[in-house]
Design a protein around this nucleic acid. Sequence first.
DNA 1: TCCCAGGACTACT
DNA 2: AGTAGTCCTGGG
Length: 277
Amino acid sequence: MIKIKIEKPFKLDDTITCGQIFRFFKREDKSFDIILKDRVINVYMDENTLYVTSSKEDNLEEIVKDYFDLNNDYSVINDFLVKQDEKLSDAVNFSNGLMMIRQDPFETVISYIISANNGVNQIASALNNIAKKYGKKIAFNDKEYYLFPSYEDLKEITQNDLRNCKVGFRDKYLKAMIDKLNNKEIDLNEFYDLDTKTALDKLMQNAGIGPKVASCILLFAYQKYDVFPIDTWVKKVMKKDYEIEGEKRIRDFATKTYGKYSGIAIQYLFNYSRNNK
DNA sequence: TCCCAGGACTACT
DNA sequence: AGTAGTCCTGGG
């Protein structure tokens, strides 16, 4: 068990449950188990202390701080957003401490391809099916978990294998992506250094990745905060609260108003809305 | 039984 | 360039 002193605002529960990640499990004691790359961690927060246990202890503090982006100061971002849009201030204040989780690119790509026209529970279920079949088993406390497999682990997987994991019609998209990665046609590390537009275009060249999925990948795996993932929920909010309709109009508004922090503005809006309905 | 849930593709104008 | 119809799956 390690204890991490939290110096800045940090909302652990909201950060975990606001829809960024799919493979987490809440325990009866209100703590969370999270499958984080090569290990399973359990996190619990009390006042200004984050308590962490892990199936693997090396570099734990560093890894957890990086994962939850605890080294960053969001007050600058929050001030900017409120200054740009006064109407956003309630959402920003409410979500103060909501962090952008820094996720593994491969798992993020797979997760958001599966997310197309799909529900959260089914996305999580499909990801867990894939992990259970192809990932390494980790015994952690009284439970068993499975790490998410790498694309090398999935080299021999077939479209039908994927279908059996309940990914539905997205099976062919996933298979094509896994093949491209193994054939080195795509290098996921490349996207960190690309500008957002180039990265979006490059991601969308792949079947199954459209504007929304590409935006989510860049936001959650590559920290490109200037993307604006427009889903059905965003369309509803924009129509209701801002009287703006149509993807292009919404995107223009977001770019003009929220600029380089558009993606974070969406997270705040969503987190505020889902907790205050 | 029908409908849809955090889209994208295809096949049309 | 823009838009209807279609797509696995599971739960209401």
